[in-house]
Amino acid sequence: MTRKEHAALASRLAVGAVLIYAGSSKAAGPVEEFAYILAAYDVLPKDFLLPAAAFLPWIELLLGWSLILGYQTRLAAAAAGALFAGFLAALASTILRGISLPNCGCFGESLHFTPAQAFFMDLCLLILCGFGFQMGHGPASLDSWSERGL
């Protein structure tokens, strides 16, 4: 593997690990709790809060594992990038509208980040997703295994 492929693998693993941690923290907790935090962002219609709170953690988990194991790598990187872009837009809108969030809700109850910290983290992860997308899957991936065998 080249140095660039190592870097792409490291990016994939980092983004995947964050998504798995975030997704499992929220999927394991009560959906009403996450819906309450989503409501504070005031970006989703009320009727969508509970369904979004129920599905979003599972999307994070699936994307996280897809990135870690390199399954549909470019698609997963693009989807994760879109997710982070959405988070950034939501965080920016709360900052611009002067909505004070006690924490970003990114990791359920396990870790509390301020909106500014979450914004910086999401921005870094978005950049890593871009890099992962550009590089595609490397040899250490399920994509590689399913295409040519180990």
Binding site: L61, L62, Y71
Partner: peptide
């Protein structure tokens, strides 16, 4: 591979639960 991803997702949520 898709089944593996799905299983791992469920397992990680169950572990954190």
């Amino acid at each position: 591979a898709a089944a593996l991803i799905l299983t791992l997702a469920v397992l990680s949520a169950l572990t954190a639960h």
